[in-house]
């Protein structure tokens, strides 16, 4: 758990000294499982800042809403820092207009895993120092191992540390084990064609096309998403198998070399749909074929956004 007082002190300093005009962080939510993203503009407001393992959103998704001239401070974990970098590369905000307060991240708790064990009526959640979580629910008290509650993206996270923050609050953590990320992809990729299709269909079928996954993703900032384009139409509009599968495939493809494995898309989905197995496969391909990981610096553009004159395919140049 990060040192909240140190975070607040730094946030206050930034606002007080006018380093930034606003800080994007979290505040306590109206329900115990859901802290809310928040935008702090004054030193007094910072008293309401909270930061814990239930803060499930990738705050970088808000970055593109603000003018590029605005000086913005943001609390960033490993994946958020990389998302910010990827956005900087794509020209969405100048890096010198940002002040990143980095927090080494021990992983986000998936509230769904809590209610699986406690029922939906949760009254309070308290992270304890021995890596357990005390949950008070209507059905009683539960002491749960934090490791069993982590969101899957976090359980297999490779880069928990903010890599290019302006300040880091807290001790750096060891890097994650890349074999875990490979296992997830292998679980899907090793299946037969029929089994893969069945898996894909079973997930895509439940989609209601609410686009929470898209809105939660920092890299989905297109002013007009391909699914919203009406003339011509790129996909079927409805929740038919073709419509839903088209949506899932193209959304994932548009993340190639851009996705930072944050898992915010999956956490936002109201239908508990797994979708990172697709983006993780693409991430793995990017690593293997191009030795590239999204957002590891603010200079290297994703392979699919670059054109070189010696490109093997001559269709562009």
């Amino acid at each position: 758990m990060p040192d909240l007082d140190a975070l607040k002190a730094e946030a206050k300093r930034l606002l007080d000294e006018g380093v930034v005009e606003m800080i994007i962080g979290f505040k306590a939510g109206d329900t115990p499982l859901h802290p809310q993203p928040a935008f702090f503009k004054t030193v007094e407001e910072i008293d309401r800042l909270v930061y814990n393992a239930l803060c499930q959103n990738n705050l970088a998704t808000y970055l593109t809403r603000f003018p590029k001239t605005q000086k913005i401070g943001m609390l960033v974990r490993g994946c958020e820092n990389r998302s910010v970098n990827a956005l900087v590369i794509e020209g969405q905000h100048p890096r010198d207009g940002l002040y990143l307060i980095g927090v080494p991240c021990e992983g986000i708790i998936d509230w769904r895993k809590i209610i699986e064990k406690t029922g939906e009526e949760v009254i309070s959640v308290f992270e304890q120092s021995d890596n357990t979580v005390l949950v008070e629910a209507k059905s009683g008290y539960f002491t749960l191992e934090k490791d069993t509650l982590l969101h899957e993206s976090c359980a297999r996270c490779i880069h928990p540390n903010p890599i290019s923050a302006d300040i880091v609050i807290g001790e750096l953590l060891p890097e994650g084990d890349p074999t875990l990320a490979r296992e997830q992809v292998a679980a899907f990729a090793d299946l037969s064609l029929q089994e893969r299709h069945a898996w894909f269909r079973q997930e895509a079928e439940r989609c209601i096309r609410c686009y929470a996954c898209r809105e939660a993703c920092p890299m989905c900032y297109c002013e007009e998403c391909f699914v919203d384009h009406v003339s011509p139409r790129w996909t079927e509009s409805g929740t038919t198998p073709a419509g839903m599968q088209g949506w899932h495939i193209v959304r994932a493809f548009h993340q190639t070399g851009r996705c930072t494995s944050c898992g915010a898309c999956e956490r936002a989905c109201p239908m508990d749909i797994k979708m990172t197995y697709l983006t993780e496969k693409l991430n793995q391909d990017m690593r293997q074929k191009y030795n590239f990981e999204a957002g590891m610096d603010t200079k290297t553009p994703p392979p699919f956004s670059t054109i070189t004159l010696d490109d093997k395919s001559r269709f562009i140049v």
Binding site: A38, F39, T61, C210, R214, E215, A268, P270
Partner: peptide, 13 residues
């Protein structure tokens, strides 16, 4: 509405 994502969750459900 500051943190709202403008998604379909609250209305579809």
């Amino acid at each position: 509405s500051r943190s709202c994502l403008s998604c379909g969750v609250c209305t579809f459900l």
